[in-house]
């Protein structure tokens, strides 16, 4: 019941029920690239870079390994031609937003992604959600969240909470793959942190 047998890149792997493919692969030292994954956080499936091919009873499909639970008798390929091609496109699309992110540049080299394939839209945030989720799940401060939706979605600090909590924490800073978070923090600080004497109070 609890042990699940599967094959990843030709290697027999046993995993506990409820583990994701990504966890099972990392457990035996197989590398799958990720951007939005963090071991302390709940799986999110935001960046899609960890996409892999799963073959189940002869049927192949593409799944996102960081949210796909392991199953018995599946064959996982982390580097098929198709997977590489899709990963390359995902990286190229992300690079339209953050062309100089070190992590993306590194991956682009590996998969032959062309930095300027898509028209630049330098919003710098790639919506990996690491800062937002870290703040909610680990730091439990809820100082930063997403606002708006679709192409207008962006991260935003709550100034009142950020002014109190962030200066002593900043644990989310090293998580950001693009350094946009730091820029957003400085902007919030400059625009909205009140000086202590004029801080509005809302008691009741």
């Amino acid at each position: 019941m609890s042990e699940i047998q599967l094959e990843i890149d030709g290697k027999e792997v046993s995993a506990a029920e409820g583990m994701t493919i990504l966890e099972a692969a990392q457990h035996v030292g197989l590398y799958i690239p990720t951007l939005c994954h963090h071991e302390k956080l709940e799986p999110y499936g935001g960046c899609r870079v960890c996409i892999v091919e799963v073959e189940e009873r002869g049927w192949k499909k593409l799944v996102v390994s960081c949210v796909y639970p392991v199953q018995n008798d599946i064959i996982v390929r982390t580097r098929s031609e198709k997977v590489d091609r899709i990963r390359k496109t995902i990286i190229e699309l992300l690079m339209a937003h953050a062309p100089d992110s070190p992590q993306l540049v590194e991956m682009a080299k590996e998969y032959g992604a062309v930095r300027d394939r898509f028209e630049k839209d330098p919003s710098f945030c790639i919506h990996c959600g690491l800062c937002v989720r870290y703040c909610a799940e680990v730091a439990k401060k809820n100082a930063i969240g997403f606002v708006d939706r679709g192409i207008n979605k962006e991260i935003s600090f709550i100034p009142e909470i950020a002014a109190k909590e962030c200066n002593d924490c900043k644990e989310c800073f090293p998580l950001c793959p693009t350094s946009y978070l730091q820029a957003c923090y400085v902007l919030t600080q400059g625009l909205a942190f009140p000086s202590p004497s004029v801080e509005p109070t809302s008691e009741e």
Binding site: V132, N142, A143, I144, G145, F146, V147, S156, I158
Partner: peptide
């Protein structure tokens, strides 16, 4: 959390 309400209210 206010972040969550803000996310919904802007969505």
């Amino acid at each position: 959390p206010l972040t969550r309400i803000q996310h919904i209210a802007t969505f």
